[in-house]
Structures are given as structure tokens and as C-alpha cells.
Computed example of a mutant assay.
Amino acid sequence: MINQVYRLVSPRQFEITYKDKSLKFEKDSIVIRPTHLSICAADQRYYTGSRGKEALAKKLPMALIHEGVGKVVYDPKGEFQIGTSVVMVPNTPSEEDEFIAENYLRSSRFRSSGYDGFMQDYIFLDRDRVVPLPEEMNLHVAAFTELITIAMHSITRFELKSHPRRNTLGVWGDGNLGFITCLILKKKYNDCKVIAFGKNQYKLDNFSFVDESYLIDEIPADLFVDHAFECVGGKGSQYAIDQMIDHLQPEGSMSIMGVSEYPVEVNTRMILEKGITMIGSSRSGREDFVNTVNFMIEHPEVLEYFSVLVGEVCEVKTIQDIIDSFEKDLTSSWGKTVMEWKI
């Protein structure tokens, strides 16, 4: 069969590439037709060319998007019914390690990061890269399951590496990741106080489920948290980390999730003085997808909260529709842009 791949070849320019795939040689693969794809900030950095010439020259041409769901169209083993909705796992490991998770192995490949993402007519996935979704799942929300797994993965690492006093938890960042992290923390630790810290009141107004919220220039001097989560990224993460250090109780932990293109300064003196543990987290693996889907099944009410994050919904039937979707996402101040993939 001929598979069409929609690749970014230069900033704001997509082209179609044709790949010949033979199903008889794909005996261990499941074929998925993407239905809903979600645009990530990392995709936008490629689309706008802000990754820099060296990175773009190395990565492009490449199909974007690593957040998405689809329907099973072919399973040679018959384990999945045709038409089953599944979330697609973008991380593709080639080995296992006793101590290092699949998303940290240097040999793993990640879709839409030097390896074609989900902007294709059909996706050929290893069996363990597919996680089935319940029939009643809101697919506009499910489209950004991968983003939710980022928070789930970080919280799993936090549970393993931090001390068990969790009376008060603080989350810095009023964007999508901050919203998701606050919600998962509140559901997993409903006896804990969860506090959100952000720059924009109109964004914090969406965090209706947290116990308290503060603008970052109005935090009381005597407010302290047992553990903190950084969901800011970019240059702003430096200021967020500084505040986290100031407002952390001694021997608390800081979970760092925000990505910055450039190094940021960190107040190591106070990290040492307070005995703070810094926990870095990046991406996620199959286990995090399974845990996230199970979490949404166990707490169906979170889907209504997550639906607040659905911003633009764009029907995609042409390459111009893809461009329009990315351009709309650039002007959106809140939420995720979801593409209904009908190309």
C-alpha cells in the first residue's frame, strides 16, 4: 500500500511524501488511521523555525505531531477489533534497561523529533505502542493524552524520590501542563492542599479545583509548600525555580518539567542550604500511557475538566488546512489546538 506522509520541509512549508508499505512484512505491526491530532509547543518550534538553523537542517524534512489518537484498521493477530480507538505512543525504544526507563534511553526514537510523527495517512506501530481507549472517551481530549502522560510520569517519579510529607503541594505555571498537573495531584492526593502559581489571572480562573491560587508577584512571604512542580519552561523557568526554592520547606523536592532552549541560572546555594531534591522529568513511556488511561477511567469527572483545555478544533482535509491549524494555534492564548484528521 502507498502511505502519504505530510512532512515539514522548511518553516511553514509542508510537502507530501509517498512511502510504499507491504502488509505481509508488517506481521507484528498494527496499522492505525489517525483521527485526532494535537499540536504541541515543540511542533510549533519546528513549524516557525525557532529551533534554529542547525537543528532544522538536522531534523527536517519530518512529519510533525506526537500527540494523537486513531482507529485500528489492520491487526494481523486479531487482538484489536477493527475500528477500536487507541492512543498512539510516540516513544519507540529499541532496547530495555534494568534501571533506565524507555524515555531516557539514548537509543530510543521519538516521533516528531528527528523521526516522522503522526501526520500520515496511516501509522504502523509496534503492538506495545498502542493503548486502547474506552468507547465513551472524548476524542478531542484523548488527542492530547501524551501531554497528560508527561504530568503523570513526573508525579510517578516524585512519588519514588520525595519524602512522604505531602500536606501542601505547589505548582508553578498557569498553562496547559500546570493545569493538568494540578488536577492529577488533587485527584491522587485529595487530602493535600494544592496551590497553583501563575502570571495570568484569567488563566488561573480556570483552576477551579485547586485549594488556592496566587499570582507570582503576590505570594505571601510566609507561604511554604512541602514539594513543588515547575511547569513553566523557557527563560521563565529560571524565575519559577527561584520562587520554588524560596517557598519550599527544607528537604522538599522540586519536579522540573518545563523545557528551555537555553541554560537557566539556578540558586545552588539555597538548594544546598535547604537540602532540596531536584527531580528532572522528560517525555513518557508506555506505562505512563496505561496509567493515564486508567486514571481517566477511574476518575471520569476529570474528562470534563480536561475538556476546558480544548481550544481550537480544526478540520483538516488539505495541506492548507494544516497550515491554518498551526497559525490558529500560534494566536491561541489558552488550551490545545486539535486537528480532526480527515486529509
Rank of each mutant, 00 (worst) to 15 (best):
235 K>N: 15
118 F>D: 01
20 D>A: 14
74 Y>S: 12
229 F>S: 09
94 S>H: 13
289 F>S: 06
71 K>E: 15
146 E>Y: 08
247 H>Q: 14
146 E>P: 12
19 K>M: 12
29 S>H: 13
323 I>S: 05
53 K>P: 11
112 S>P: 08
72 V>L: 08
165 R>C: 02
118 F>I: 02
166 R>C: 04
1 M>Q: 13
240 A>H: 12
248 L>F: 10
251 E>I: 03
32 I>W: 10
96 E>N: 09
39 I>W: 00
241 I>S: 10
56 L>T: 01
332 S>R: 15
188 K>Q: 15
33 R>K: 13
190 N>V: 03
186 K>D: 10
88 M>S: 06
103 N>S: 14
343 I>N: 13
44 Q>S: 13
274 K>L: 02
189 Y>S: 03
253 S>I: 02
113 S>H: 11
60 L>H: 01
19 K>Q: 14
196 A>P: 05
57 A>R: 11
281 S>M: 02
156 T>C: 09
210 V>S: 07
219 I>H: 11
295 F>Y: 13
52 G>D: 09
143 A>V: 04
170 G>A: 14
81 Q>T: 11
140 H>T: 06
37 L>D: 00
74 Y>V: 07
72 V>N: 05
5 V>G: 06
78 G>K: 03
131 V>T: 05
143 A>Q: 04
19 K>T: 11
203 K>I: 03
121 D>Y: 05
81 Q>S: 15
120 Q>D: 05
61 P>I: 04
322 I>P: 00
182 C>R: 05
236 G>D: 10
77 K>C: 12
286 R>H: 13
317 K>A: 06
5 V>F: 01
136 E>Q: 11
25 F>V: 08
112 S>G: 09
107 S>D: 02
46 Y>E: 02
143 A>C: 05
291 N>Y: 08
180 I>Y: 07
77 K>P: 05
216 I>T: 13
204 L>A: 02
286 R>E: 09
159 E>L: 10
37 L>P: 01
13 Q>C: 07
258 G>A: 10
250 P>F: 11
327 E>W: 00
27 K>F: 11
291 N>G: 04
224 F>G: 00
143 A>T: 01
51 R>K: 13
141 V>F: 00
276 I>M: 11
212 E>S: 12
69 V>S: 13
159 E>H: 11
28 D>W: 00
158 F>Q: 08
54 E>I: 12
231 C>D: 09
67 E>C: 10
267 N>E: 12
221 A>K: 14
187 K>E: 12
18 Y>R: 15
82 I>E: 13
160 L>W: 11
234 G>A: 10
136 E>P: 00
193 K>I: 12
289 F>Q: 00
